[in-house]
Design a protein around this nucleic acid. Structure first.
Lengths: 201, 201
DNA sequence: ACCTGAACACCGTTCAAGT
DNA sequence: ACCTGAACACCGTTCAAGT
């Protein structure tokens, strides 16, 4: 028996294991023991299945911090949590980088972030910029590893002397990408905190 | 007559006008007045055509600033220039977000950025983080408009009270996205500059 | 109400055949 | 050396037919 839940769970596992390109209607149907067209009884298009997979990932990001901590602390902890979830499901990030659209969990997350900033006293226009900035950093870093973006063939770097150690990046890719994300988040939040306190006195 | 140059130029125009999904081997061939398989005399796979289109975009980013200005100034001006080029060719950004790979212009850009940071005195590990951070911000912001990521249907936001103005974001999307990017770049570079001067004394 | 087989209009890629 | 037609193994989606 086919249900939306089973379809989304199987599609999500397929995307995690083999990437977005491996998710085809026929392939997903086979995995569910059914023929391709059957899925159209439960979702209008393949894009809706992909959206549901993406929203299931966002649903796993804890938003309770926004009720517990001051805005800068909550923002930092939420960004780390969001980043951690995306690191576990990197193949769906291209969808999330397009914004919440009509996805309920995406909208709930935007509401929590934007609401916390406005309630803390940030002007709405500034809160929008901060929200955008956070999405840029989190999805930008999750979309493709910086370290793995360099080929491991050493001969490739003969004409780029400063990059002679680039082939070694791949071996430490988690540490490199994690460190860059943490540095960026620190710089952004510390800078915002300084601005915030500057306007308060 | 088919040349790599003509193929890349036509493919780039097609991607700009209709998106990456519209670029198919048959469609591109038709636009070039030729049959699909002909393209395989000039490129081994479609992915190589896409890579060439991406590298042609990166080639348009001016790197001369790194010879003229102190690292923080050069970094800021380069990031703005890169961001401006991507804003003109948003549909190819998903490819650039995967890193330089084996693309010559991508590698030359990485060499210029990393080289300038190391030559200025940043430790290589830190320079790597800074380079990664810049790619996260620039590609993250170019990959999908934050403002256009929200649906314009006002009824959608009934259950998200803080987002009641979200449907109006689309009308000012350039200003919103531009402002968020500029804010992020300022925060990052000012923060890095403070760190740099802190270690110098 | 839900699943199927057949069909439509597409894909990327290979390869023998032409010039 | 370069282009073509035919073919292979795929796509997303529609729809009449079955239960």
């Amino acid at each position: 028996m086919l249900t939306r839940e089973r379809i989304v769970a199987t599609a999500g596992a397929l995307v995690d294991a083999e990437g977005l390109d491996a998710l085809s209607v026929r392939r997903l149907a086979t995995e569910l023991g059914v023929q391709g067209p059957s899925l159209y009884n439960h979702f209008p298009t393949k894009a809706d299945i992909v959206d549901a997979v993406a929203d299931a990932v966002v649903e796993r990001v804890d938003l309770s911090v926004f009720q517990e901590a001051p805005w800068h602390d909550a923002l930092r902890r939420w960004a780390h949590a969001y980043h951690a979830v995306l690191t576990e499901h990197p193949n769906i990030v291209p969808v999330l980088a397009q914004g919440p659209g009509r996805r309920p969990a995406g909208l709930a997350m935007a509401e929590a972030v934007f609401g916390a900033l406005v309630d803390a006293g940030w002007p709405p226009a500034r809160a929008t910029h901060i929200g955008a900035l956070m999405r840029y950093l989190v999805t930008g870093s999750a979309l493709g590893s910086f370290a793995l973006g360099f080929d491991i063939d050493p001969d490739l770097y003969d004409r780029y002397p400063h990059l002679h150690n680039a082939p070694r990046l791949a071996a430490h890719h988690e540490a490199v990408d994690e460190g860059a994300f943490a540095l960026g988040l620190d710089l952004l939040i510390n800078g915002l905190l300084a601005q915030f306190e500057g306007t308060r006195r």
